[in-house]
Amino acid sequence: MSVTPCSLRPLHLAFALDTPGRRARRGPEIYDAEHYVRLARLAEHGALDFVTLGDSFARPGPDALAVLARVAPRTGRIGLVPAVTTTHTEPFHVSTAVNTLDWVSRGRAGWTVEVSRSQAEADLFGRRDAAPADALWREAGEVADVAARLWDSWEDDAEIRDAATGRFVDRDKLHYVDFRGTSFSVRGPSITPRPPQGRPVVAVDATAGPAREVAAAHADIAFVRAEDPTTAGAARAELRRRADALGRDPDRLLVFASLPVELYSSGDAVGLAELIGDWHTDGVADGFHLRPADPGRDLALLVDATVPVLQHRCLLRRFYPGATLREHLGLPRPANRYAPVRKVSS
C-alpha cells in the first residue's frame, strides 16, 4: 500500500557516513565493516532515503562501493550510494560494479559520480597526466551515459535459464551499445543482467560549475553545498532549467541541499528540523544531504529528534512505502532504450 505524506512535495533525507578528516588517519574505524552496518541500520530506522560514502584515490582506506556491498545484506530498505571515481577507471567495470551493488541490495543502489583531479592520483596509474576540470567532467558524463546504456543492454526478460535446452539467455534480447567517447569506446553488451531498478540512481555533486552540465544531463540527484536558502534555490532553478533545455523532465532531477551538521543536543536537532522544514516549504530543495561532524553522535540525534519533528509536521514519511531506492525517491523505473515496443495481443 502506498502512503502519501501530508506534504504535497515529499521531503527526502540522506546522510553521509564519512567523518571529516578521517580519511587521512589510519585506525580500526576505517576498516571496521560493523561500524558502517550500525550506521546504515540506524539511518534505516529513521526511514532516511539513503546513505552516502565518499571515496578518492588520494587517501588510504577501503573502497566505498565494496564497503556498501558488505552493508547491503545487513539492511533491508535504506538506499546505498557510494562515490565511484570515473577517472583512470574502465567504464565497463564501473557499470558492472554498480550493477552488482544493485543486485546484492535488491534494488537499493546508487552511485555518486566523482572525478580524480590531482597529478599525484594520476601518477598512481601512470597512464596519463591530470586533466583540467572541464575535460574530467566531460569524460565523467560519458561514463554515466555508457553505464546507463550497458544497464539497458540486457532486456528485462533476456534470461531464460532453461536447463532442458541448455539456454541461459535469449541472445536476441542482448544489445551492443557501440559507444565511442572522447577517451574510450565500449561495444557491450554487459556481462550482468539489467539491474533490478533498471538503472541504479545516479548522483552528482553539482556545487562546482563543471559538474552542473553532467548533473543536468545524467543525474537523478544533484547535491549542492549551500550555506543559505537563496544559494540553494538559485542552484536548483539553474539545474532544472539546464535539464529542461536538454529535453529532460526537470521533475526527474531531485536537487538536495548538502549541509554540514554538528549536533550536540536534542535542541540542536530540533533546530535542524526547523531549518530543513523552512527551506523545504520555501521550495529551495527537494531533499537534504547531511554531512556530519561525528556520524555516530549526529545520526543518533537526527533519528531521535530531527526526524520525529519533521514527521510531526507531516513533511517526512514514517516508513518506507516501497522497496527500491527509486521508489523511495518517487522516481520511475526507466524504460529500456533498446527493447522494441511489443504489441500486446488482445
Rank of each mutant, 00 (worst) to 15 (best):
P28Q: 14
A147L: 09
R167N: 09
D286K: 00
C314Y: 01
W111I: 03
A203Y: 03
A206I: 04
V309Q: 14
V309T: 14
P82A: 04
R9K: 13
Y264G: 05
T85E: 02
A208E: 12
D178N: 15
I78D: 03
L124H: 06
V284F: 00
H45S: 15
V224I: 14
V214I: 11
V115Q: 05
V67F: 00
G233M: 06
A245C: 09
H312M: 06
P60H: 14
L253G: 14
D286L: 08
A158L: 01
R171C: 03
A40Y: 02
L13I: 02
D228P: 06
R225F: 02
T306Q: 11
G277N: 02
G61Q: 02
R297V: 09
P10D: 04
V98A: 00
D18L: 02
P193K: 11
G166C: 12
L259K: 06
A226L: 08
T231D: 06
T85K: 09
H328W: 03
A234M: 10
R149V: 03
H88K: 05
R106C: 04
R252I: 06
P292Q: 05
H35S: 07
W154R: 12
K343Q: 09
A24Q: 14
A64L: 05
W154T: 10
R138N: 13
Y36M: 07
A232D: 02
L315R: 14
D32W: 13
R41N: 10
P5T: 14
P62M: 10
A97I: 03
P91L: 01
V214P: 02
S183T: 15
R23E: 15
R326Y: 09
G322P: 06
L136T: 07
P189K: 10
A135C: 05
P229A: 04
E327F: 10
H280M: 12
G287I: 07
R194T: 09
S258H: 07
L48E: 03
R225M: 06
W111C: 02
V214E: 01
A72F: 04
G198D: 05
A109H: 06
I221P: 08
F256E: 10
V284C: 08
F288Y: 13
R342P: 00
A43Q: 11
A305M: 01
L8Y: 06
A226R: 07
N99Y: 01
T230A: 15
A245L: 15
A323N: 11
V201S: 07
S105G: 08
A269P: 04
L259G: 01
V51E: 10
S266R: 15
C314L: 01
L315Q: 14
L246T: 13
F50E: 00
L42E: 14
D286V: 07
T281M: 01
E227W: 07
T89A: 13
A211I: 04
H93I: 08
A72S: 08
V201C: 05
V303Y: 05
G141Y: 05
W137F: 12
P10G: 09
R225C: 08
H35M: 00
W279M: 01
G181L: 03
F168I: 06
L136H: 06
R26S: 15
